[in-house]
Design a protein around this nucleic acid. Sequence first.
DNA 1: CGTTCGCACATCGTATACGAAATATCCAAT
DNA 2: ATTGGATATTTCGTATACGATGTGCGAACG
Lengths: 221, 221
Amino acid sequence: MSNAVVPSVAVPSRTEAVLDALKHAILTGGLPPGQSLVENELATQMGVSKTPVREALKTLAGAGLVTMSPYKGATVRTVDDVLAHSVYDIRLLLEPEALRRAVAADGSASAHWRSAADALDRADQCTDRADRSLANRDFHRALYLGCGNELMVGILDGLRDQTALVSAVVWNRTPSWEQEATEHRAILDAVLAGSAERAATLLHSHIAAFVERNFGKARTS
Amino acid sequence: MSNAVVPSVAVPSRTEAVLDALKHAILTGGLPPGQSLVENELATQMGVSKTPVREALKTLAGAGLVTMSPYKGATVRTVDDVLAHSVYDIRLLLEPEALRRAVAADGSASAHWRSAADALDRADQCTDRADRSLANRDFHRALYLGCGNELMVGILDGLRDQTALVSAVVWNRTPSWEQEATEHRAILDAVLAGSAERAATLLHSHIAAFVERNFGKARTS
DNA sequence: CGTTCGCACATCGTATACGAAATATCCAAT
DNA sequence: ATTGGATATTTCGTATACGATGTGCGAACG
């Protein structure tokens, strides 16, 4: 009873504030892989004590975005080609399947498709790589959000975050965002047409093509 | 330089000790789902301060074994049928694929198959449900360990842990370990015969059968 | 007698303090 | 000049203290 009449401004705990700030900085490249994260520095820099910083770092470590070694400190996780392949490998297995289910379940009438389209429009207007990367993240997420398996959504969210780390490595290689935008549109068309199988196939090809473009020539094995 | 000549007895930090203790207690059912985990209680009970307890709880929350609400405390995660279905749903997608790759990569000559067989033998000798559950965990893990994708191993480990939570719900329904043991043997036989496809199919059937037995009205793939 | 207000308790969130481990620095001895 | 080791510094790990927040029970009031 006596709930705050106003939706209770949702005061975020300091731990959450630090967590969001760090995560955003990592995902947008503000904190590049390998960057060392000293607890005291971050604490004074953000005007809080070490405790929330530690808890945020531990959460990020659990999500795979940060590596912590005892008495050596925390760093933004560095990604090698092996990890990058692992991430896309699993995305290839799960993401098309999730999209297939989402289309099969909701048909062409779902609020998620609207937000997917919005994300694409937003991506087109962006000039900054980091912003476009965020918009593309939203697009992919909108595709698998309706898959009906909350746990799968969580796993794909985590993989998507790690993908952002990978981006920091591949950005210099082949900036082919126009190609990606075209493929995104094709996927969305298939989704809106209600053809689950075609959408899933296109999404699979899209991810595979990204891997091929950015890692195909580099990897020996 | 001058690394400890002796492999350095691997002094575990208090946080790790608490983490292992809590995790083990949760997975074996010593701490049943819904059990409230009060920081101060656990701290005094384990002879440490609140800090390592908090960090351990946060890690467990990240792994999905514990739920934390601000100012309300932590509890062992309660599993409903929806979550249980989600877990097995994803396992059905990933675990057979992982086994297929492991067999294809290592053939019938892999140390993992040996430990898988050991796990089965151990399970047969167990009389306690919790111990047999642990042994079965080891068996499944041995199957996917050689899949060649470390990230996938991590995800499957997490799913397997949540499966233990599910077990706490399922235990009362249909205790059919003998059936499971038979299926396990069949899978291992296929693995040792080097037939990746058959092993994967059997594993898929094995998991699906488990879901069918315990949740009946499940929708399979 | 039912409802509501308020206070006390329980528990968490955060800050601060201190000890432990690792790393960097500097000086002496060869 | 180089190497070895002792020391200083940095950084983390843990403990403790304190304020913030939610919860429940009892008393006052209608």
